[in-house]
Amino acid sequence: MTVEEHARRHPEVWCRFSPRQTLVRYAWYVGIVFVALWSVRQLEIPWLYFLDAHVQAGDLLVRMFPPDWAFIEEVLDPLIETIHIATLGTAFTFIIAFPIAFLSARNTTYNDLTWLIGRFILVTSRSVNTVVWGLVFVAIFGPGPVAGIWAITARSIGFLGKLIAEAIEEVDVGTVEAIEATGASRLQVLWIGVLPQVLPIIWGTVIYRWDINIRESTVLGFVGAGGIGIILYSSINLFAWREVGIILISIFVVVVFSEFVSAAVRQRIT
């Protein structure tokens, strides 16, 4: 072994990345920072506001305390309505999303057209936020919880449908084959061969979405679609911060509670 060869095999410097990799990496870093800075500039953020931001925030917190506990009576009904909107919206979603999920799964759909229709419905539903759906349904049904329920339904169909369709596409093919081999009809294959396999996932997803919907329905009131958001909106606009404090606390409690229930139920059924 010559000296050069030995030197080549045992270099004194070791680098994890080749120069090219390092270059690409730094190009990414610079690009990301550049995009972020450019965006900040474009947004024309009034930086002066930040000088007294901590004062403002502290002030806000001080004004929220002590919360106006007497106000809880006014909060209770809208809070219950919020939960109802979430539950009924989820229930309707389940009824509507169930057949759509079977249409949107490659292995249970009828033909390419039905698959495309199913996918289209799911994508449209998913791409529009619950609050935006709320705007649309308030324009249709007028302000109130009915618009809220439909807004929740409209958004959740895409969520449930997509996850259920994915579960259907992952069912064990052998089982379906075996049921087909007995001479079962298409509906029977779905009912005996497919459904039992996806049922736990369906229930899990429904409960999970219910929990998300509770959180979503707390803001539907901002566009007039019912629930606690309505009084939260008016209290904020009246700068009644002690009321806002109690509303935020109650929302917090309900959301944490629903998350807990959802997690507990999902753990039991799977």
């Binding site: 707390t218 939260l232 904020i236 935020l248 917090f252 959301v255």
Partner: peptide, 9 residues
């Protein structure tokens, strides 16, 4: 826990 829209307002 608080929805983005609440934080936003």
């Amino acid at each position: 826990t608080l929805h983005e829209v609440i934080v936003a307002i």
